[in-house]
Design a protein around this nucleic acid. Structure first.
Length: 878
DNA sequence: CGATCCCGCCACATT
DNA sequence: AATGTGGCGGGATCG
């Protein structure tokens, strides 16, 4: 019976009758040419076309499932088919199915069948990924909607996302022009650049939010205003802006989509959790508060993610945390965008793939090519903003400025940090998942957007708290104890990253460092490992190669020394190039690297990585360790550079300031420092801010590597220490080998200085999985990739550390031991239990713990995760 | 029960 | 005013 109906229906009438979508769609389309389909509903359809029709209706009404099945079937059809032919055919199929269906009832694919992702696939199947330039394909929304059998609304969802990536552009009223992926890389590149910049802003916002939240209204300052501008503007972008016309509406989906993509591109790890993304995206909303809002954002993100997934740009993964697993998405699309530097952004008509003309309209969506322009507005930052160019050039830039920015910058950093952390956490949680972040890998290019700004940051922070910083990771430990070891692998394996320079911060405050990791570094790291391993065996934590901090370097300088500003651009550049990885040194002793040991190393690879982040905290006594690290000589050159830059800074200021509150000096801009809130005081995190999207694909993909470098510094200790930055730098470009060494060296370097004090450095460990390494990235020597992976450090261990001395972590570095390790009792509790909270807080948040708590309550989300970990870590320590 | 996310109301934009 | 767009969130479904 059904069959009949359908057959008939299809051709003839549209489905009015049926409530069911299916029918409508199919049937309708044809008739409806007029584009917008009217709702079926409109007509209530009294008469059933056929007897069967009635049945159908009944059925559908009765059992949604049934309907679903039908739909499913439709869906099932090969996409290709679906295109045109479908319509009619589909009916048939359905019919057939129906009969069978009953049987199948169980299945009821329904919902899934209707998923946006599937719909998107069908949609995409209709058009060539790389259409000939000559042909322009126009897409009629109505047509597509009818063909695909969905409401137009759904098509908008898809198209909006595609438009954000410039795969399509809107030409007119129901018309879109299909561009295909020709420009995708450019777009991504642009987004990446813009992302760096923007993020900062966003991040800021977040801070605010947090702060705000818990605080009473103290909003901090200025920030607020910015918020708005920031993000949105970007999109609006420079060129296109023209129209600012688009009003606000533009925003959402399209912008959200771009931002979401940016997050991926910016993050070292290519993984972004939904909640993190939502938070970031909410930025605008300073309020955040609403839970509902968050929910809504997440919903939208799912929509976007579905489309991106269909495009093959991301994939779903889960990051397991202590609490549970969190949904996350991993970027699987291209990471680097070679060639085109700044391509002509949309501006050039010529190049621009998209038809600019229309653009006016589109414009908003477009991304600003480079963030630069946008920056203008950011200018406030002070020129700091480095667009890519700037960054790159950093040298040119005057860094100095910035105080103002600092704040902003800081905030940004923080945000990033938060993000990173989460990622890390995530990774840690589920090592298995893979999710890791790959941080390091930042490509040389990756610059840190922020960098420039940074200097100021520190000052703000200051709060200080005492103790150490932790990394999350902890939880992971609990999960897999073994893990830790892995990270280390100490054996020197690759894990360590050689290159990173260290930073030490005294004070409690958090700092952000930025280090870009460069590829080179990464690579380098590998080689280094051996050395590293030597040093400390495990310890090595420090070494994370990757970190490149180009910027950081200068930043560092600036911060430290008042001088910063002065820095010669040139230096900066150099520095940048070199990136210094930060390495943190942690007190080594403790660990014996339980982890490492435990893990035989390589074996664990992936998992390990995840865990990676552990910090060693073991003994305060670190100095020795430091020494070890230091052992290696870096490339002199690089070091020198650093030294130049850094040195000045470091020496003096670091210590003091930090210790104090002043902190004006921002160290490395590149990293984020998170000041502990009162509660947490103990930990400080540093995250590399760098976007470094560049990370190339790591081989790792499999592995989750985190790129994020995190550093935790115990505040207390810090004071005593001078800041050390190891400039490890390896030239980014440079020679690989050097790199490795350099890293090491850097470490050494720092150490030496520190040693006396016995500061601790913590490096995030970058663990590389041996296996992983395979990615041949470049030179064999540089197994680098692997290096990329950082291992998260465990917080607890940190905790321990903090006690004694300050710790510095270099993000790229691997941390060596982390947690658990035997010796260290990591348990934080002993150390300072209270503090964890602070962890992620933004500097602003300094406020007492209390405030913090509030936050939790309110926004659990933001902080919560981190905090949780912390807590957990503390508790869990194994 | 949390994660997903379909569905479509309805406001705002455009014609 | 009609129609195009698309924000938004209830609530169903999945896992």
């Amino acid at each position: 019976e059904n069959i009949f109906d359908r057959s008939r229906m299809a051709p003839k009438t549209p489905i009015k009758n049926e409530p069911v979508d299916l029918s409508k769609q199919k049937g309708c389309t044809p008739e409806r040419n007029p584009i917008t389909p009217v709702k079926l509903t409109d007509r209530p359809q009294p008469d059933p076309w056929t007897p069967t029709a009635n049945l159908k209706i009944l059925v559908s009404a009765a059992s949604p499932d049934m309907r679903d099945r039908e739909k499913k079937k439709e869906l099932f059809r090969p996409i290709e088919n679906s295109e045109q032919s479908d319509t009619p055919d589909s009916l048939q199929y359905d019919m057939v199915d129906d009969s069978t269906v009953d049987e199948f009832e169980k299945q009821r694919p329904s919902r899934k069948q209707k998923s946006l992702g599937l719909l998107c696939q069908k949609f995409l199947a209709r058009y060539p990924s790389y259409p000939l330039s000559t042909e322009k394909t126009t897409i009629s929304l109505d047509e597509v909607a009818s063909i695909l059998g969905v409401e137009r609304r759904r098509i908008y969802d898809i198209v909006n996302v595609l438009e954000s990536l410039h795969l399509v552009s809107r030409v007119a009223k129901n018309q879109y022009c299909w561009h295909g992926r020709h420009n995708l890389s450019q777009t991504l590149k642009t987004l990446q650049e813009a992302g760096e910049v923007q993020y900062g802003e966003l991040m800021t916002f977040q801070h605010k939010e947090q702060d705000l939240d818990y605080k009473f209204g103290e909003r901090k300052k200025e920030t607020i205003p910015d918020t708005q501008d920031g993000p949105l503007l970007d999109f609006s972008e420079p060129d296109c802006t023209s129209a600012s016309a688009n009003s606000r509406k533009d925003k959402s989906l399209r912008i959200m989509s771009q931002k979401f993509v940016m997050l991926f591109l910016v993050s070292k790890t290519k993984i972004v959790t939904l909640d993190v993304a939502a938070k970031i995206l909410i930025e605008e909303t300073q309020d955040t508060v609403d839970h509902s809002k968050f929910k809504t954002k997440v919903r939208r993100l799912y929509d976007i993610a579905n489309v991106l997934t269909s495009l093959g740009l991301i994939k779903k993964v889960h990051v397991t945390e202590e609490r549970g697993r969190k949904p996350a998405f991993k970027w699987i699309g291209p990471v680097e965008f070679p060639g085109e530097t700044d391509e002509p952004r949309g501006n050039n008509p010529t190049s621009d793939p998209l038809p600019r003309t229309q653009r006016g309209v589109c414009a908003p969506y477009q991304i600003c090519a480079t963030g630069k322009q946008r920056f203008t507005r950011h200018a406030s930052f002070n020129g700091a903003q480095p667009c890519e160019e700037t960054r790159r050039k950093v040298s040119s830039e005057p860094n100095s400025p910035r105080q103002e920015r600092q704040d902003e910058y800081c905030s940004k950093m923080i945000n990033l940090a938060a993000v990173c952390r989460q990622k890390i956490e995530e990774d840690t949680r589920n090592p298995s998942t893979t999710s890791t972040l790959s941080l390091l890998p930042v490509p040389g290019d990756s610059d840190f957007c922020v960098n420039p700004l940074p200097q100021a940051v520190f000052p703000m922070v200051q709060a200080d708290v005492p103790n150490l910083a932790l990394l999350n990771g902890v939880s992971s430990q609990s999960l897999h104890p073994s893990m830790p070891a892995a990270s280390k692998t100490e054996d020197g394996k690759p894990t360590l990253l050689p290159s990173q320079p260290f930073l030490c911060f005294p004070s409690s405050s958090l700092f952000m460092f930025c280090g870009g990791l460069q590829e080179n570094n990464l690579r380098e790291t590998l080689p280094a490992t051996g050395e590293v391993g030597n040093r400390n065996a495990e310890a090595q934590a420090a070494v994370p190669p990757t970190a490149c901090q180009k910027r950081s370097s200068h930043k560092c300088t600036s911060p430290f020394a008042p001088v910063d500003d002065e820095e010669p651009a040139a230096k900066k550049q150099t520095m940048e190039q070199r990136d210094v990885p930060l390495s943190l040194v942690v007190p080594k002793k403790p660990f014996e690297s339980p982890k490492a040991e435990s893990i035989p190393g390589s074996g664990c690879t992936p998992a390990v990585h995840l865990e990676d982040f552990h910090l060693d905290l073991a003994s305060p006594a670190a100095p020795e360790a430091a020494d070890k690290e230091s052992t290696k000589p870096l490339d002199s050159q690089e070091q020198e550079k650093w030294s130049q830059n850094n040195n000045p800074d470091e020496p003096s200021p670091g210590k003091e300031h930090i210790s104090k509150e002043n902190a004006n000096q921002p160290f490395l801009p590149q990293y984020l420092y998170v000041q502990p809130t009162s509660g947490l005081s103990s930990f400080n995190f540093l995250f590399s801010a760098n976007q470094a999207p560049g990370a190339f694909s790591l081989a790792a993909s499999q592995l989750p590597s985190m790129s994020v470098p995190c550093v935790v510094v115990p505040s207390a200790a810090m004071a005593s220490f001078p800041v050390v930055c190891s400039p490890t730098v390896t030239g980014p470009l440079s020679p690989v080998p050097d790199g490795s060494f350099s890293a090491a060296t850097s470490m050494n370097f720092s150490v030496s200085g520190l040693a006396s004090t016995a500061p601790v450095f913590i490096g995030t460990t970058a663990v590389v999985t041996p296996k992983v390494s395979p990615t041949p990235s470049v030179d064999p020597q540089q197994p680098a990739h692997p290096t990329l992976h950082l291992s998260p450090v465990l917080a607890r261990s940190c905790g321990a550390l903090k006690l004694d001395s300050p710790v510095c972590m270099g993000h790229p570095v691997t941390v060596l031991k982390l947690q658990q390790p035997s010796s260290t009792p990591l348990t934080p509790k002993s150390i300072r239990p209270a503090h964890h909270e602070a962890f992620f807080k933004t500097p602003g948040s300094l406020g007492g713990p209390v405030a913090w708590k509030k936050n939790e309550g309110n926004q659990t989300r933001n902080a919560s995760s981190v905090q949780r970990r912390l807590e957990i870590s503390s508790t869990s320590p194994d």
